[in-house]
Design a protein around this nucleic acid. Structure first.
Lengths: 120, 120
DNA sequence: TAGGGTACTATAAAAAATGTAAGTAATGTC
DNA sequence: GACATTACTTACATTTTTTATAGTACCCTA
């Protein structure tokens, strides 16, 4: 999650695929170790940084920050800072962020079915 | 895509999330740079290794092999080898592989909407 | 004045994913 | 006998993602 190298083959491949296939584009946006879980939690309503941290006990603060920044950049979450001390920052899904609801639900369903399928 | 280190924090985190959240589980299975595109193509019917290679001009043979192996391990594609020379190997989606159709379609739709959303 | 809470940032390192380049086996054709 | 075809494999290099650890500013409370 640092700076990406725009000269790499990997970068070129990703770009090309994302332009052609909207499903790959989508996967790249919500991808990453924690992106989906964060969105899942936020589907229930806005949360503070520290609340998310509690919900995701093993995430590091750095990772949480990075993922939230990425989601913010992609306009999936809105970040609201309250000028208080100690600081308070709330994260909330945008309209298109909430649109992820059905996507996540379908993924979840498929995942559950797949778990059973794999057992056999 | 090499061997994963079962002692790493990353591995532990992934495992825990995958058990709790089926959507993360699903994302991990179809994730990877090329997984989704390969499945997309296979939704139209079985394909040979070389045909996939032609459809994905920038993928390396190594990557194609790795991704197909992962999909096979996860029982999303079925691999059929014909004892001919030169060899012929066909890849076809399994039942649950075909179930990815709606998932991919929804992701695609969301992706397209998101592209427009981001422009504004 | 020492400590606590909040939401971070900086730096480094480890781990994972992807890419590069070359080679292999078997057989049929020229 | 050289060469082409197919579906790979192997060794190695690079890039990207994730984790680890230690800070920071601000004010409030004890």
């Amino acid at each position: 999650m640092s700076k990406i190298k725009e000269s790499s083959t990997n970068f070129a491949n990703k770009q090309a695929l994302m332009e052609e296939c909207s499903e790959v584009y989508a996967a790249n946006i919500i991808g990453g170790q924690w992106g989906l879980v964060i969105c899942s939690w936020l589907l229930n309503g806005k949360l503070r940084f520290s609340e998310l941290k509690k919900l995701l006990p093993t995430i590091t603060e750095r990772m949480l920050t990075l993922q939230l920044r990425k989601l913010e950049e992609n306009k999936i979450v809105k970040r609201t800072v309250y000028a208080e001390v100690p600081p308070r920052v709330e994260y909330e899904l945008t309209e298109i962020g909430y649109d992820l609801g059905p996507v996540i639900k379908l993924l979840e369903k498929w995942g559950e079915k797949h778990k059973r399928f794999k057992e056999v």
